[in-house]
């Protein structure tokens, strides 16, 4: 199939961006979306033109690097998958596809479809950890943990830090990301000890980074490649009020 791509091109953080049309030819249904872009980029490079910059690494939905808004939806709208797991069999010949970067004040642009998500790292640095040093820890089985708690913690810990939740939110709120980390740790006895301190400092860091407020519309949950549940936000709100 052949496709028309309307791609956001922006030379650098300080230069203005615009949509540019590119054509993707002979696209096969088994290609992933990023492989389709690779092919377009090869053609551009062969012509001496600058390829479209985008982030990706693992290409299997776990590193959280890939980050494209496709036809208005972060990660392209297939439930529970990241951009790199989207395959071309979901598109049809002659289709026009718009491709944009994550857009949020706290994610400044780098180039084309690449943005700076280091705000997420700084939120984790503010308290998204258990304060233990290496060594001197008790035997791993010293403290039994109910399977339901561990499973729920794992649901939250599955977050890949991609930022789609922010990109989907009309307020560019990072609540789902923050709640996932806060709950992953608060649900486990090891993390409970400093749960109050953690939630306070992480929420404060989130606000300081310029992420918006949460109005619980649920658009974040809908695009999250790991289907992190909105319930974690209400749990976090409770913990926050208690703290």
């Amino acid at each position: 199939m052949n496709l028309t791509l309307k791609v956001w091109r922006q030379k650098s953080a300080n230069s203005p961006g615009r949509f540019q049309d590119h054509t993707a030819r002979n696209v096969m249904p088994d290609m992933s979306f990023l492989e389709m872009l690779d092919v377009v980029n090869e053609e551009l490079a062969e012509r001496g033109e600058e390829p479209i910059a985008f982030d990706s690494d693992c290409r299997e939905g776990i590193c959280g690097a890939c980050s494209l808004v496709i036809n208005g939806i972060p990660h392209g709208g297939n439930a529970g998958t990241a951009t790199c797991q989207l395959h071309m069999r979901h598109f049809h010949d002659g289709q026009t596809i718009t491709i944009e970067p994550w857009r949020a004040r706290a994610f400044p642009p780098v180039k084309d479809l690449v943005v700076d998500r280091s705000a997420f790292d700084r939120i984790i640095q503010s308290g998204g950890f258990v304060s233990v040093n290496t060594g001197g820890t008790p035997d791993a089985n010293a403290l039994p943990i109910p399977k339901v708690d561990q499973e729920l913690a794992m649901d939250a810990a599955a977050c890949i830090g991609c930022g789609a939740c922010v990109a989907a939110c009309k307020n560019a709120s990072a609540m789902l990301f923050v709640a996932a980390k806060v709950q992953h740790l608060a649900l486990l006895p090891q993390g409970k000890v400093e749960a109050n301190r953690r939630v306070l400092s992480m929420v404060e860091a989130m606000d300081a980074e310029g992420f918006g407020a949460c109005s619980v519309t649920g658009s974040c949950e809908a695009v999250c490649p790991k289907q992190i549940s909105l319930d974690f936000i209400s749990r976090m709100n409770r913990d926050y009020l208690k703290a």
Binding site: T134, A140, I145, Q150, M154
Partner: peptide, 16 residues
């Protein structure tokens, strides 16, 4: 031991 102390949610049995 280290990873469990950090909050790594390894799989568990019903007994915890």
């Amino acid at each position: 031991d280290q990873c469990v102390a950090q909050g790594v949610p390894f799989a568990r049995e019903y007994g915890g």
